[in-house]
Design a binder for these strands. Sequence first.
DNA 1: GTTGGAGTGTCAACAACACTGACATAAACT
DNA 2: AGTTTATGTCAGTGTTGTTGACACTCCAAC
Lengths: 169, 169
Amino acid sequence: MDRRTSSPSSGEALLFLTDEQLRQGIEAMFFAYRGFTADPDRILADMAYGRAHHRAIHFIGRAPGTTVNNLLNILGVTKQSLNRVLRTLIADGLVESKVGRQDKRERHLNLTQAGRTLEQTLSDAQRARMRAAFREAGPEAVAGFRTVLEAMMDSEMRSSFGRLKDSAA
Amino acid sequence: MDRRTSSPSSGEALLFLTDEQLRQGIEAMFFAYRGFTADPDRILADMAYGRAHHRAIHFIGRAPGTTVNNLLNILGVTKQSLNRVLRTLIADGLVESKVGRQDKRERHLNLTQAGRTLEQTLSDAQRARMRAAFREAGPEAVAGFRTVLEAMMDSEMRSSFGRLKDSAA
DNA sequence: GTTGGAGTGTCAACAACACTGACATAAACT
DNA sequence: AGTTTATGTCAGTGTTGTTGACACTCCAAC
C-alpha cells in the first residue's frame, strides 16, 4: 500500500483515491473513449460498416491466420454476432477464410489487399489521435496510462492483451 | 519503421510513438473499456436498464438540476435517444423532472432517493474497479493516465469534462 | 466403426441503443 | 405578431449484441 508513498509530501499521494478522483477517472474514461472511436466511426459511417467491422479487421490484421474461435475469445462476443460481421467482410472481399490444413474444421482468417487498405485507413485515423495525445502527454504519462489500463482489464482480457503484445516481435 | 529512430541515444524516450506502441495503446484502450463497463453492465442486465440509463443517472447525479439540453450536450446523443431513457427513468421514479422557475421551457432533472440508491450501487462497482486499478498502478501512473485521456478527448468533450471537474468543489 | 464433442456456419427472433425526419407545444425573445 | 428555443413524441431504420436451435465436418476415444 505504501509502495507508492514515493512522494514524501504525503497528502497528495493519498488523495488520489478519493471518490472525487475516482469519479473524474470514470468520466475521463467515458469522454476519452468517445474521442478514441470518433474518427474511425466517421469513416465507417459512409460505408455499410460499423465499429464491429473495425474491430474484426483490426484483430485479423494483428494476428493473421487466426481462427474464428480465437477471434471470438479476443472480441468477447457470440459467434453469431461475429459471423454476421465476417460474412459481410468476406462477401466484400476484405477478408478471406481458408479451411485449416491440419484441422479442417478451423477457418484461418486473413486480410486481402483491399482489407489491408481499409485497415490502414482506419487505424491511421485512430493512431493519429493516439499519437497526438501521446506526444502532448509525454512518455512518463504514457507509461502511466498503459499501467492503469492494464490494471483495469479483466484478467482474461489481460492475458489476450499480453499474448498480442508478445506476438508483436 | 525506422523513420523516428532519429535519436540514437535517447531511443527509449521516443519509442513511445512507434506504430507498435500506438497499436498497443489502442488495444489497451479497447480491453480496458470493456473491463470498465463490465461490472455496471452485469448489474443493469438484471433490471430492464442498459448502459444508456447508467450514463444518464451518472450525469444527473453529478450535476443535479441540470437541464435536458445540457445533458444532451454532455452525452452527445440525440434528444430522441435521451428521451427514451429519461421517460423510463421518470416513470420508474428514479429521476424527477421539474419545470424551470425562471425559464419554464426548461426541465430540471434530479435523482430521487431511489435514483440515488441505484446510482450508488452502479458507481460503487465501477469505482471499486477503478480504485483497484489506481492502487495497483500508483499515483504517478494515475496522473499519466489522466493526462493522456484528457489529450485524447475531443475539444468539446474536454470542455464538458473541465466544467464537471470544476463544479466538484 | 461408432459415438461424443469441438469448431464452424446459419436461421430466426428479439432487445438495446443509436440515428433521421417530421410534427406539436409552450415559453421566451425581438 | 413572428421567430426561436426547449422539450416531447411518433414512426421508421440500422448496427450490434443476445438466445436458442439445428446441421455439418472432423478429431479422438472407446
